[in-house]
């Protein structure tokens, strides 16, 4: 395996970098990692609700992406391709976290005790949103994040998740309804 740490230009196109990696320039992959780290990381953080788990899933996705790079049919769309890998890694990590009781906050009382979000109290609002997201079923949270936060079209979401478009639309709708309900409940307390 080519070992090429050192210095990397991080302004080349995805396609160019993928071609360099495939040609044996392993180090060119650092530019792709740096390029997509924060954007994909945002999805993982919101999906998993835990930064450490998110970084682990992200790292795993990047490594798997590298090892499967020959299967990336359209190098210019490397980011979209990698997204699919991350979505799967988050599913696995989420299931693992749920089994050890780390992720899903099912404590409704704790949520309703949360103060109303206020622009002046960002940390509390952040906590409230995080707990509300954690109360959604994973497939609802996944659909909501991909649609509204990552701005994906339904056909792209279908490709990434393997679910049908009508099912995805339903999941997004349910996620919105449940979030509205959760926040209304919190308001009444």
């Amino acid at each position: 395996m080519a070992q090429s740490l050192g210095i990397h230009h991080v302004g080349a196109s995805d396609g160019e970098l993928v071609r360099r990696v495939r040609a044996g320039d392993t180090g060119a992959y650092t530019a792709l990692v740096a390029r997509y780290r924060d954007r994909l990381g945002r999805y993982a953080v919101h999906m998993l609700g835990d930064r450490e788990d998110a970084e682990e899933a992200l790292q795993d996705a990047f490594v798997r992406g590298y090892r499967s790079l020959a299967r990336c049919d359209d190098p210019e769309r490397f980011g979209a391709w990698l997204y699919g890998i991350l979505v799967n890694r988050c599913r696995t990590a989420g299931a693992r976290a749920a089994r050890r009781g780390r992720l899903f906050v099912r404590d409704d009382a704790a949520l309703t005790r949360a103060p109303l979000p206020s622009p002046a109290e960002r940390a509390e609002w952040d906590d409230t949103v995080r707990r509300a997201l954690a109360r959604l079923a994973p497939e609802y949270r996944e659909a909501f994040l991909l649609k509204h936060i990552e701005d994906l079209e339904y056909d792209e979401m279908a490709r990434l998740t393997g679910a049908g478009i009508s099912a995805l639309k339903m999941r997004v709708k349910r996620a919105r309804e449940q979030l509205q309900l959760i926040f209304r409940e919190a308001e009444r307390v």
Binding site: L5, T26, R37, D38, G41, V45, H46, Q59, F62
Partner: peptide, 19 residues
């Protein structure tokens, strides 16, 4: 949720180490 999230840049090195 759309606000940028900063991920630890050390992720890059860990990926390259593993690779």
């Amino acid at each position: 949720l759309r606000r940028p999230v900063q991920i630890d840049p050390a992720v890059d090195s860990r990926v390259m180490e593993e690779i």
